[in-house]
Design a protein around this nucleic acid. Structure first.
Length: 262
DNA sequence: GCAGCTGTTAGTGG
DNA sequence: CCCACTAACAGCTG
Protein backbone atom coordinates (compact mmCIF):
# COMPACT_ATOMS: atom_id res chain seq x y z
CA UNK A 1 0.00 0.00 0.00
CA UNK A 2 2.85 2.30 -0.70
CA UNK A 3 2.78 5.75 -2.27
CA UNK A 4 0.98 8.87 -1.07
CA UNK A 5 -2.46 8.08 -2.55
CA UNK A 6 -2.52 4.60 -1.05
CA UNK A 7 -1.43 5.92 2.35
CA UNK A 8 -4.15 8.57 2.09
CA UNK A 9 -6.59 5.71 1.65
CA UNK A 10 -5.23 4.01 4.79
CA UNK A 11 -5.68 7.26 6.69
CA UNK A 12 -9.29 7.49 5.63
CA UNK A 13 -9.76 3.85 6.60
CA UNK A 14 -8.29 4.44 10.05
CA UNK A 15 -10.37 7.59 10.57
CA UNK A 16 -13.53 5.68 9.76
CA UNK A 17 -12.83 2.74 12.04
CA UNK A 18 -10.63 3.19 15.09
CA UNK A 19 -10.64 6.73 16.47
CA UNK A 20 -11.63 7.33 20.11
CA UNK A 21 -11.95 3.68 20.99
CA UNK A 22 -10.15 2.33 24.01
CA UNK A 23 -7.54 -0.31 23.24
CA UNK A 24 -7.88 -3.15 25.71
CA UNK A 25 -5.30 -5.58 24.35
CA UNK A 26 -2.26 -5.49 22.10
CA UNK A 27 -0.57 -8.37 20.31
CA UNK A 28 2.77 -7.82 18.64
CA UNK A 29 4.17 -10.24 16.06
CA UNK A 30 7.38 -10.38 14.05
CA UNK A 31 9.96 -8.21 15.75
CA UNK A 32 11.41 -7.18 12.42
CA UNK A 33 9.13 -4.26 11.67
CA UNK A 34 9.30 -2.71 15.14
CA UNK A 35 11.72 0.18 15.38
CA UNK A 36 11.53 0.28 19.20
CA UNK A 37 11.28 -2.65 21.60
CA UNK A 38 7.93 -4.40 21.27
CA UNK A 39 7.36 -3.95 24.98
CA UNK A 40 7.40 -0.18 24.48
CA UNK A 41 4.61 -0.46 21.92
CA UNK A 42 2.59 -2.70 24.21
CA UNK A 43 3.02 -0.43 27.23
CA UNK A 44 2.11 2.67 25.29
CA UNK A 45 -0.89 1.28 23.45
CA UNK A 46 -2.72 -0.67 26.13
CA UNK A 47 -5.52 1.40 27.67
CA UNK A 48 -4.71 4.21 25.29
CA UNK A 49 -6.70 5.41 22.27
CA UNK A 50 -6.19 7.21 18.98
CA UNK A 51 -7.32 10.81 18.83
CA UNK A 52 -6.55 11.73 15.24
CA UNK A 53 -4.41 10.82 12.26
CA UNK A 54 -2.04 12.71 10.00
CA UNK A 55 -0.39 11.68 6.78
CA UNK A 56 3.01 12.95 5.72
CA UNK A 57 4.53 11.51 2.57
CA UNK A 58 4.18 7.76 2.76
CA UNK A 59 3.85 7.75 6.55
CA UNK A 60 0.70 7.58 8.62
CA UNK A 61 0.77 9.08 12.13
CA UNK A 62 -1.79 8.00 14.70
CA UNK A 63 -1.88 10.45 17.55
CA UNK A 64 -2.50 8.91 20.94
CA UNK A 65 -4.56 10.42 23.70
CA UNK A 66 -1.71 9.76 26.10
CA UNK A 67 1.94 10.23 25.09
CA UNK A 68 2.92 10.65 21.53
CA UNK A 69 2.28 9.07 18.19
CA UNK A 70 2.27 5.65 16.57
CA UNK A 71 3.95 5.94 13.16
CA UNK A 72 3.29 3.52 10.33
CA UNK A 73 5.21 3.02 7.13
CA UNK A 74 3.58 0.48 4.83
CA UNK A 75 6.62 -0.69 2.91
CA UNK A 76 5.50 -2.55 -0.21
CA UNK A 77 2.70 -4.67 1.19
CA UNK A 78 1.54 -3.23 4.50
CA UNK A 79 -2.11 -2.41 5.14
CA UNK A 80 -4.73 -2.02 7.83
CA UNK A 81 -7.48 -4.54 8.36
CA UNK A 82 -10.38 -3.65 10.67
CA UNK A 83 -12.72 -6.48 11.56
CA UNK A 84 -15.13 -7.87 14.14
CA UNK A 85 -14.74 -11.63 13.76
CA UNK A 86 -12.32 -13.86 15.65
CA UNK A 87 -9.92 -14.93 12.96
CA UNK A 88 -6.64 -13.03 12.97
CA UNK A 89 -5.71 -12.09 9.39
CA UNK A 90 -2.72 -13.69 7.77
CA UNK A 91 0.56 -11.77 8.11
CA UNK A 92 -0.67 -9.76 11.08
CA UNK A 93 2.27 -7.93 12.68
CA UNK A 94 0.33 -5.81 15.14
CA UNK A 95 -3.15 -6.45 16.45
CA UNK A 96 -5.17 -4.09 18.59
CA UNK A 97 -8.36 -5.14 20.30
CA UNK A 98 -10.80 -2.39 21.23
CA UNK A 99 -13.25 -2.35 24.08
CA UNK A 100 -16.19 -3.03 21.77
CA UNK A 101 -14.38 -6.20 20.65
CA UNK A 102 -13.56 -4.82 17.21
CA UNK A 103 -9.98 -5.29 16.08
CA UNK A 104 -7.36 -3.64 13.94
CA UNK A 105 -4.61 -5.66 12.32
CA UNK A 106 -1.56 -4.20 10.65
CA UNK A 107 -0.58 -6.82 8.11
CA UNK A 108 2.48 -7.06 5.91
CA UNK A 109 3.51 -10.26 4.07
CA UNK A 110 6.86 -8.94 2.90
CA UNK A 111 7.83 -7.34 6.20
CA UNK A 112 9.20 -4.20 4.59
CA UNK A 113 6.83 -2.12 6.68
CA UNK A 114 8.02 -0.28 9.77
CA UNK A 115 6.35 0.82 12.98
CA UNK A 116 7.80 3.62 15.07
CA UNK A 117 7.00 5.52 18.21
CA UNK A 118 7.48 9.29 18.08
CA UNK A 119 6.93 12.36 20.18
CA UNK A 120 5.20 14.23 17.40
CA UNK A 121 4.85 14.42 13.64
CA UNK A 122 7.28 17.33 13.52
CA UNK A 123 9.90 15.54 15.61
CA UNK A 124 9.65 12.47 13.39
CA UNK A 125 9.87 14.50 10.20
CA UNK A 126 12.99 16.16 11.52
CA UNK A 127 14.72 13.06 12.81
CA UNK A 128 13.93 11.03 9.69
CA UNK A 129 14.89 13.79 7.33
CA UNK A 130 11.56 13.85 5.54
CA UNK A 131 10.93 16.53 2.94
CA UNK A 132 7.80 18.55 2.31
CA UNK A 133 4.67 16.54 1.61
CA UNK A 134 4.05 16.24 -2.12
CA UNK A 135 0.50 17.56 -1.76
CA UNK A 136 1.51 20.47 0.46
CA UNK A 137 4.51 21.76 -1.44
CA UNK A 138 4.32 25.20 -3.06
CA UNK A 139 5.57 26.01 -6.54
CA UNK A 140 8.35 28.12 -5.09
CA UNK A 141 9.45 25.35 -2.73
CA UNK A 142 9.51 22.94 -5.65
CA UNK A 143 11.54 25.23 -7.88
CA UNK A 144 13.97 25.91 -5.03
CA UNK A 145 14.44 22.17 -4.53
CA UNK A 146 15.18 21.74 -8.24
CA UNK A 147 17.68 24.58 -8.28
CA UNK A 148 21.24 23.34 -8.61
CA UNK A 149 20.36 19.65 -8.85
CA UNK A 150 22.35 17.57 -11.29
CA UNK A 151 20.56 14.23 -11.14
CA UNK A 152 17.63 12.84 -13.10
CA UNK A 153 14.18 14.32 -12.61
CA UNK A 154 12.81 10.92 -11.70
CA UNK A 155 15.42 10.51 -8.99
CA UNK A 156 14.51 13.90 -7.56
CA UNK A 157 10.79 13.15 -7.54
CA UNK A 158 11.37 9.92 -5.62
CA UNK A 159 13.79 11.44 -3.09
CA UNK A 160 11.82 11.41 0.17
CA UNK A 161 14.13 13.84 1.90
CA UNK A 162 13.27 16.47 -0.72
CA UNK A 163 9.62 15.73 -1.50
CA UNK A 164 7.75 13.16 0.58
CA UNK A 165 5.17 10.87 -0.95
CA UNK A 166 6.05 10.13 -4.58
CA UNK A 167 7.38 6.67 -5.44
CA UNK A 168 8.20 4.71 -8.55
CA UNK A 169 4.73 4.48 -10.08
CA UNK A 170 3.61 8.07 -9.72
CA UNK A 171 6.98 9.54 -10.60
CA UNK A 172 6.52 7.76 -13.94
CA UNK A 173 2.95 9.04 -14.17
CA UNK A 174 3.88 12.67 -13.51
CA UNK A 175 6.60 12.53 -16.16
CA UNK A 176 4.31 10.81 -18.64
CA UNK A 177 1.66 13.47 -18.10
CA UNK A 178 4.21 16.24 -18.61
CA UNK A 179 5.79 14.50 -21.62
CA UNK A 180 9.23 14.67 -20.07
CA UNK A 181 11.75 11.84 -20.30
CA UNK A 182 12.47 10.28 -16.88
CA UNK A 183 16.21 10.44 -17.46
CA UNK A 184 16.19 14.17 -18.10
CA UNK A 185 18.69 15.99 -15.94
CA UNK A 186 17.01 18.48 -13.64
CA UNK A 187 19.45 21.23 -14.60
CA UNK A 188 18.59 20.79 -18.29
CA UNK A 189 14.87 21.35 -17.80
CA UNK A 190 13.35 24.78 -18.43
CA UNK A 191 11.44 26.70 -15.76
CA UNK A 192 8.33 26.09 -17.82
CA UNK A 193 8.91 22.34 -17.77
CA UNK A 194 9.58 22.36 -14.03
CA UNK A 195 6.39 24.30 -13.43
CA UNK A 196 4.43 21.79 -15.47
CA UNK A 197 5.92 19.00 -13.37
CA UNK A 198 4.87 20.85 -10.24
CA UNK A 199 1.32 21.19 -11.57
CA UNK A 200 1.11 17.52 -12.50
CA UNK A 201 2.38 16.34 -9.12
CA UNK A 202 -0.73 17.88 -7.59
CA UNK A 203 -3.05 16.69 -10.36
CA UNK A 204 -1.82 13.11 -10.49
CA UNK A 205 -1.72 12.61 -6.73
CA UNK A 206 -5.17 14.10 -6.23
CA UNK A 207 -6.71 12.09 -9.04
CA UNK A 208 -5.17 8.82 -7.92
CA UNK A 209 -5.94 9.53 -4.27
CA UNK A 210 -9.62 10.08 -5.09
CA UNK A 211 -9.65 6.95 -7.21
CA UNK A 212 -8.16 4.91 -4.35
CA UNK A 213 -10.57 6.32 -1.80
CA UNK A 214 -13.60 5.88 -4.04
CA UNK A 215 -12.47 2.45 -5.17
CA UNK A 216 -12.40 3.54 -8.82
CA UNK A 217 -9.83 2.97 -11.50
CA UNK A 218 -7.43 5.69 -12.55
CA UNK A 219 -8.25 7.44 -15.85
CA UNK A 220 -7.68 5.72 -19.19
CA UNK A 221 -5.18 8.39 -20.08
CA UNK A 222 -2.88 7.25 -17.25
CA UNK A 223 0.31 5.30 -17.76
CA UNK A 224 -0.28 3.71 -14.35
CA UNK A 225 -2.96 1.54 -15.94
CA UNK A 226 -0.41 0.03 -18.32
CA UNK A 227 2.27 -1.12 -15.90
CA UNK A 228 0.97 -4.66 -15.79
CA UNK A 229 1.06 -4.97 -19.55
CA UNK A 230 4.63 -3.76 -19.42
CA UNK A 231 6.80 -3.11 -22.39
CA UNK A 232 5.01 -2.83 -25.71
CA UNK A 233 1.69 -1.55 -24.35
CA UNK A 234 0.01 1.06 -26.52
CA UNK A 235 0.46 4.66 -25.41
CA UNK A 236 -3.02 6.03 -24.64
CA UNK A 237 -2.19 9.23 -26.52
CA UNK A 238 -0.62 8.14 -29.79
CA UNK A 239 0.81 5.17 -31.63
CA UNK A 240 3.87 4.92 -29.39
CA UNK A 241 4.73 1.69 -27.61
CA UNK A 242 5.56 1.88 -23.90
CA UNK A 243 9.20 1.11 -23.15
CA UNK A 244 10.80 -0.13 -19.98
CA UNK A 245 14.16 1.15 -18.75
CA UNK A 246 15.98 1.57 -15.44
CA UNK A 247 16.26 4.98 -13.84
CA UNK A 248 17.67 5.57 -10.36
CA UNK A 249 17.72 1.83 -9.97
CA UNK A 250 13.98 1.43 -10.53
CA UNK A 251 11.96 -0.06 -13.35
CA UNK A 252 10.63 2.84 -15.36
CA UNK A 253 7.95 2.96 -18.04
CA UNK A 254 7.63 5.77 -20.53
CA UNK A 255 6.49 6.50 -24.06
CA UNK A 256 9.40 7.30 -26.37
CA UNK A 257 7.07 9.18 -28.71
CA UNK A 258 5.50 11.55 -26.14
CA UNK A 259 8.46 11.80 -23.85
CA UNK A 260 11.13 12.02 -26.50
CA UNK A 261 14.81 12.02 -25.74
CA UNK A 262 16.63 13.56 -22.84
C1' DG B 1 12.81 -22.48 -11.55
C1' DC B 2 13.48 -17.60 -12.04
C1' DA B 3 12.63 -12.70 -12.44
C1' DG B 4 10.27 -8.90 -10.96
C1' DC B 5 7.64 -5.83 -7.73
C1' DT B 6 4.06 0.60 -5.56
C1' DG B 7 9.86 0.76 -0.55
C1' DT B 8 14.15 1.83 2.16
C1' DT B 9 18.96 1.36 3.35
C1' DA B 10 23.94 0.31 3.24
C1' DG B 11 27.73 0.02 0.45
C1' DT B 12 30.43 1.14 -3.73
C1' DG B 13 32.04 4.17 -7.02
C1' DG B 14 32.10 8.23 -10.17
C1' DC C 1 28.27 16.48 -0.70
C1' DC C 2 25.55 14.85 -4.86
C1' DC C 3 24.11 11.07 -7.56
C1' DA C 4 23.63 6.33 -9.84
C1' DC C 5 23.58 1.70 -9.14
C1' DT C 6 23.39 -2.90 -6.60
C1' DA C 7 22.15 -6.02 -3.15
C1' DA C 8 19.37 -7.16 0.53
C1' DC C 9 15.09 -7.70 2.85
C1' DA C 10 10.41 -11.64 1.97
C1' DG C 11 6.44 -13.43 -0.14
C1' DC C 12 3.73 -13.90 -4.13
C1' DT C 13 2.88 -13.89 -9.10
C1' DG C 14 3.60 -15.02 -13.87
Amino acid sequence: MPELPEVAYQKKYADATILHKKIIAVETGDKKIYQSPKSDFEKLLVSNQFESTTRLGKYLFLKLKKNGVLVMHFGMTGKLDFYQHDETPKYTKLKLIFEDDSKLAFTCPRKFAKLYLAESVEAFQESHNLGVDALAISEKQFLDICDGRSGTIKGLLMNQSLIAGIGNMYADEVLFQTKIHPKSKVNNLSQKQLKSIFDKIGDVLEVVKEARIEGKRVPESYLTRLRKEGEGADCPRNNGKIEQIKVSGRTTYYCPVCQGEF
